[in-house]
Design a protein around this nucleic acid. Structure first.
Length: 342
DNA sequence: CGACGGGACGC
DNA sequence: CGACGGGACGC
């Protein structure tokens, strides 16, 4: 990993080029939580298929040389690192080891932060476009790089005219990375800053507070809440600020009724599940009928886990029929279906 | 003379 | 819970 470091000259305040190049290009390094007994050779064997590995580093205790069960792998490209994360998070590396590994995009070394980088920060790109572009034009240009959740264009609020700037949200980090890597340079595509950006300097407190709110609240004992009919049909919109929020909720549709317990038992195998719920018929144990369908919801900690659940469970048989598992609250779901004629 | 560089979201 | 080595440096 030296080809990138030499030219940049290290403009950032007081950091040696060798250190900065660890994260060049941005988001090309992954952080892994693994078994203390997994050797580097196994990592190389399992991760080389995602791209050009520039460095593998198993972190060890300085004195005892024992692995601390964490590792970093540096890829040449961000899209390679993202694909490795998407494919390998939650997998087991060795047959005799039952603990699934964790894989995240590594925080840049100069950031000093150790919070997990979330999909929200990795799936939306910011582009410069001709003023004549509509959202549909933008979608057409960028759909070749992956599944688009939505497109938006910044417009003058009074005249409605485009300011020549747009956003594209993809379903997966690797898709946003591929768009940035491969789209025409005139788009000047970069990752978009999250909308409600923390002040970035004293971020430690901010994020730990957010995590408390997201995870805290005790283990969701209301896993099977039998008193929620009152809220029907307004499923709690907890964190859906319009279409800007990233969907972490899945909808599950079946021709045949299923219980919340059944829903939980099949979704529980996917790491990151926060809770399941069904829209319940107050007088039976089975789900409420909505437009002739039986509907449940499963909420995940992040989009990566939600995507895992889709690929693992969509089409799986429950009570003798195939389940349809898709993102819930996705405003694009309808038009997506229209465009793909099947 | 003659064409580069810029860039942030209605809570 | 789970976060940062090694190597060697041209002005």
């Amino acid at each position: 990993m030296d080809e990138a470091g030499s030219s940049a000259g290290g403009g950032v305040s007081g950091f040696r080029p060798g250190v900065d190049s660890l994260d060049e290009p941005p988001n090309s390094r992954i952080f892994l939580v693994i078994s203390k007994y997994t050797p580097e050779a196994v990592l190389r064997e399992r991760f080389s298929r995602f791209g050009d590995i520039q460095d593998i580093w198993v972190v060890r205790d300085k004195h005892t040389k024992e692995s601390k069960g964490i590792a970093f792998i540096k890829f040449a490209r961000s899209s390679q690192a993202c694909r490795a994360m998407e494919e390998m998070h939650g997998q087991c590396l060795e047959p005799n080891n039952t603990k699934p590994i964790k894989v995240f995009i590594a925080q840049s070394r100069s950031s000093g932060s150790h919070r997990d980088v979330e999909d929200e920060e990795l799936t939306r790109i910011f582009v410069m476009i001709p003023k004549s572009y509509t959202e549909e034009d933008l979608r057409e240009k960028f759909k070749v790089y992956g599944d688009i959740e939505y497109c938006s264009i910044i417009k003058n609020k009074v005249t409605g005219e485009s300011k020549g700037l747009g956003y594209v949200r993809y379903l997966k980090p690797s898709q946003a990375a591929q768009a940035i890597e491969n789209c025409d340079r005139s788009f000047r595509a970069i990752l978009a800053e999250p909308k409600n950006k923390p002040s970035e300097s004293s971020e430690q407190d901010y994020y730990s507070n957010m995590r408390q709110e997201a995870l805290g609240h005790e283990p969701r004992v209301n896993m099977f809440p039998f008193d929620q009919q009152s809220e029907f049909p307004n499923f709690d919109k907890n964190e859906n600020r319009g279409q800007e929020a990233i969907s972490k909720r899945l909808s599950v549709v079946s021709r045949v009724p299923f219980t919340e317990e059944q829903l939980f038992s099949i979704f529980d195998i996917v790491p990151g599940l926060e809770y399941c719920e069904v829209q319940r018929d107050p007088y039976s144990n089975y789900v409420y009928l909505v437009s002739g369908k039986n509907v449940g919801y499963a909420k995940f900690a992040d989009r990566m886990s939600a995507n895992d659940a889709i690929s693992t469970l969509h089409g799986k048989i429950l009570n003798g029929v195939r389940l349809k598992v898709m993102l819930a609250d996705s405003p694009r779901e309808e038009s997506n279906k229209r465009q793909r004629t099947y």
